[in-house]
């Protein structure tokens, strides 16, 4: 596997700093699965230096690949400003994926903010397999501006529930409140179909989703994000504390982990967070 040259064929602003980059020339990404990611670098000179890990949003025929990103720093700001025709270097597909949709399980896809891409792709994959009614998406953000691509998601034919912290769209509160409400309803209805949870979003949200899943005894898969320089298991930058050994690596062991694998150290992590006191 080597870096290949691709080009931006469309750069669509979604407001709120969110944008979708559509790349052409991504034939090597054919067959990518939901959860997998790429390393991407533009013609940026020496600063910023490193390629950026980005989850795939959608991969279509003829070498087309879509990415969703939000401007958070130098790299994403440069991407957001890259006009059609810009050349980018791409390495991928990298990492593992969420379990494939199945007719025997109902999947709850829990997305927080810019953590949407792998779940969007999972929903798309369910729709392609004719399993859209076996998936439900719960999607949360701070405000309505953080909830994007809603038309496309509805187009997959899956149930969609929204939550915003300011109440500007959907339930007022966090997506985890929506998840608990959904699980309580499910319990009341005593649905025969077993549930499975897949989530991607901010780390604190993921731990909360993991704890909820644990307390309900539901299988749960979390897609983690971490700083990484290489994406291929060499820099060892993307370590996450894990149960079976001290560290696992987001790029080569993940980015998707069973929650039980990475949840063991949560209490330790949150203690050290609160000790800092500068949040």
């Amino acid at each position: 596997m080597r870096y290949f040259d691709a080009r931006v064929i469309e750069n669509r602003s979604l407001g709120g700093g969110y944008f979708v980059l559509r790349l052409g020339g991504c034939e090597p990404l054919a067959g990518s699965r939901p959860g997998q990611f790429i390393m991407l670098r533009g013609d940026w000179g020496r600063d910023p230096l490193l390629p950026r890990p980005l989850s795939l949003l959608s991969v279509a025929h003829e070498g087309r690949a879509d990415l969703l990103a939000k401007v958070v720093g130098k790299g994403t700001a440069l991407m957001e400003r890259s006009p059609p025709g810009s050349r980018v270097s791409v390495l991928g597909p990298l990492g593992n994926s969420f379990p494939a949709p199945s007719a025997d399980v109902t999947d709850l896809l829990v997305a927080g903010g810019v953590g949407l891409p792998p779940l969007f792709m999972q929903a798309e994959s369910a729709a392609h397999l004719g399993l859209a009614n076996g998936s439900e998406m719960l999607y949360g953000g701070r405000t309505s501006r953080d909830l994007v691509l809603l038309g496309e998601i509805r187009g997959f034919g899956i149930a969609l529930r929204l939550a915003t912290e300011d109440g500007s769209l959907g339930r007022r509160g966090r997506v985890t409140d929506e998840l608990e409400a959904r699980l309580d309803r499910g319990r009341a209805a005593a649905s025969a179909q077993p549930l499975r949870i897949m989530a991607c979003g901010p780390r604190q949200m993921l731990w909360a989703v993991g704890r909820i899943a644990q307390s309900h005894g539901i299988d749960c898969y979390l897609s983690l994000e971490e700083q990484m320089a290489c994406g291929i298991g060499v820099c060892l930058g993307c370590a996450v504390a894990a149960q079976t050994r001290p560290y696992r690596y987001v790029c080569k062991d993940g980015p998707v982990f069973p929650a039980s694998e990475v949840m063991a150290h949560v209490s330790v992590a949150s203690t050290s967070q609160s000790r800092g006191g500068a949040q």
């Binding site: 020496r46 230096l49 490193l50 971490e226 700083q227 060892l236 930058g237 370590a239 504390a241 560290y247």
Partner: peptide, 13 residues
Amino acid sequence: FGNPPPRICETAA
């Protein structure tokens, strides 16, 4: 086993 994360960050060049 190495150090706890975060282990890397990008700086100017």
